[in-house]
Design a protein around this nucleic acid. Structure first.
Length: 302
DNA sequence: CCGGACTCCTGTGCGC
DNA sequence: TGCGCACAGGAGTCCG
């Protein structure tokens, strides 16, 4: 479940492995992971999706991130956007590739070289919630895709948060998960941020005071920064570009700890479902404030 | 307009 | 030991 910290850490581990390398060929093993906008061109042999729109024969000159999405930029301008979804990985492997270095569910392989080394970049995604989008330029990626994303969570300000939550009568957790409002948070870091800010996940988004907005913005930035520094959270799938797991999961205060004692007050943590997502919080440390809550629809009996 | 439910998909871990 | 099922959930889509 890579969220912003995992992607940011991945970016930093991929940078030395990719920047300056030239893509000698691209092999798409599973075509449907290449998403819109469709790759219109085909290669010389016809039929298979074009290598060029997937960076073939380009030198890699940039690695960008917005929210949970990564972009690899080539020197001909092409920008491919990669979203890892739930279970996606990007791995750098030696080339030629020993058979046991190609994991199951490898969908795309970029072969790379520089003056003295060959390597390969693999996109692996068992659940296929992820995907790859190609754009002729970084500018068109911004205009067509990243424009739909809210401000990046790693640098969110209280003012940006205020405008994202303004006039929204939904649980604050639901809004924080909405990538068009705020880009980068997933289930783990939303729960961690709300716990740190001592805000109940079901509070109506528009009910947060200025003090709470400042606290929440600061908590989000801090939780993400600490997770980036710890190399991201490895719950099940995530590994960085070198195949290494992260360590941030050891710092989680609430995620995955439903029923266990709150690290602050000792009371058993509550587990609930918001937007079909398991939500863990402390009823004591994250008080409700009754009239500010979004009620569960199922509670409207009588 | 809004929010909830459903969909895609596979690996894991549990209960029986 | 093995089977079946619940669960994990990012994000798009559909429906009330």
């Amino acid at each position: 479940m890579p969220e912003l910290p995992e992607i940011e850490h991945l970016r930093s581990t991929l940078r030395p492995a990719l920047l300056g390398r030239t893509v000698t060929s691209v092999k798409v093993l599973r075509h449907d992971v290449i998403r819109e906008p469709a790759t219109e061109a085909t290669d010389d042999r016809g039929g298979t999706p074009s290598g060029r729109s997937l960076l073939a024969s380009q030198r890699i000159v940039g690695l960008e991130r917005r929210g949970k999405q990564l972009a690899i930029v080539g020197d001909a301008g092409t920008a491919i956007c990669i979203h890892l979804g739930m279970s996606g990985r990007l791995l750098v492997r030696p080339q030629p590739l020993p058979v046991d270095c190609v994991p199951p569910h490898t969908h795309c392989i970029w072969r790379l070289r520089d003056s003295h080394r060959r390597s390969a970049l693999l996109f692996v995604d068992p659940r296929r919630f992820g995907g790859i989008w190609s754009f002729p330029s970084l500018a068109s990626l911004f205009e067509q895709r990243w424009r739909r994303l809210g401000p990046d969570a790693a640098s969110i300000s209280a003012a940006q948060l205020r405008s994202a939550l303004r006039q929204v009568q939904r649980p604050v957790k639901a809004v924080l998960l909405d990538q068009s409002k705020l880009a980068g948070l997933g289930n783990i870091y939303v729960d961690e941020s709300l716990f740190r800010a001592a805000i109940h996940p079901r509070r109506s988004a528009d009910s947060l005071s200025d003090a709470e907005l400042r606290r929440l913005a600061r908590s989000i930035r801090l939780v993400l920064l600490q997770a980036i520094q710890a190399g991201g959270s490895t719950i099940r799938d995530y590994v960085d570009g070198n195949g290494r797991a992260g360590a941030a999961q050891a710092r989680h205060c609430v995620y995955g700890r439903g029923g266990l004692p709150c690290l602050a007050c000792g009371q058993a943590l509550a587990a609930d479902r918001i937007l079909q997502r398991t939500t863990v919080f402390c009823e004591h440390c994250q008080p409700t404030g009754e009239e500010m809550m979004v009620k569960k629809a199922s509670l409207s009996l009588r």
